Simulated scan of single mutants.
Amino acid sequence: MRRIALITLVVDDYDEAIGFYTEALGFRLVEDAPRPDGSRWVVVAPGTEGGHGSGLLLARAKDEAQRGRVGDQTGGRVGFFLHTDDFARDHARMSAAGVRFLEEPRHEPYGTVAVFQDLYGNLWDLLQPSS
């Protein structure tokens, strides 16, 4: 079996990123381990797959070039897609938690969707796929 396990997301600060992803988006903290170089191995993931789904590796920017990419990892395009089985529930919970949605929910042939920003400005789709 092959799968994409982790995608790196460059962040300014480990703890603020953990707070946003776990509190505002409802992800779970999978791992937070110190590394010998002073950095941390921080993984967050949606759902309760017990490590079998995809996750985000939150990597603190190490230099000016990386800091320049924080919040713009995909050049202003939606780069992350959070699937849900209950759009209304998650949209309401995330909105109440302060997540900034850039549009009203819309219905497309592929599902119900709305674009939101993470705490750094990266664009995400909250998406409940059709059937």
Rank of each mutant, 00 (worst) to 15 (best):
E103A: 09
F101A: 02
A88R: 12
S39C: 08
F80K: 01
A88W: 08
H83I: 12
E31I: 06
L25Q: 00
L9R: 03
P46E: 03
L82I: 04
Q73L: 11
P109Q: 06
A33Q: 15
G76M: 06
R69N: 11
Y110E: 11
V11I: 09
E103M: 07
V10L: 14
G55L: 05
F116S: 06
Y21R: 02
A5Y: 13
R28S: 11
E49Y: 11
G68D: 08
S131F: 14
A33E: 15
D13H: 02
S95C: 10
R3M: 06
E64Q: 14
D85P: 07
L126W: 01
D32L: 05
Y120T: 12
A92S: 11
V43N: 03
Q66M: 11
D90C: 04
F81C: 14
G50Q: 08
T8G: 12
A33V: 15
Y120Q: 13
R100V: 15
V99L: 09
R35D: 13
F116V: 07
F81G: 11
A96D: 13
A24N: 11
K62H: 14
F87N: 04
P36N: 08
E103I: 02
G68H: 08
E104S: 15
D125C: 12
Q73T: 07
G98C: 07
G47K: 02
A114C: 05
G98Q: 04
E104L: 14
G121Q: 09
I7R: 12
W124L: 03
F20T: 05
E16L: 14
A96Y: 09
W41D: 02
D63E: 03
L56Y: 03
D32H: 12
I4L: 09
R67K: 12
Y120M: 11
Y110Q: 10
P34Y: 10
F20D: 05
A88D: 15
G111K: 05
W124Q: 05
L57P: 07
V30P: 04
P105C: 00
A61S: 07
F80L: 13
G111M: 01
Y14D: 09
V10I: 15
V42K: 01
D90K: 01
P36I: 04
A114Y: 00
D125I: 01
R69H: 12
Q73M: 13
G75I: 06
L127M: 12
Y120P: 08
E31H: 00
A59H: 15
V99K: 09
W41Q: 05
E104H: 13
W41R: 05
R67Y: 01
F20E: 03
Y21F: 08
G76A: 09
G79E: 06
E64T: 14
G47F: 03
D125S: 10
L29T: 00
V113G: 06
S54M: 04
A97S: 13
L56T: 03
D85T: 14
V11F: 05
D15T: 07
V115W: 00
V70S: 05
A92P: 07
P105L: 06
E108I: 11
D86N: 12
G111N: 01
D72Y: 12
A61E: 06
R60L: 10
T22S: 01
P109V: 04
R69M: 14
R106E: 15
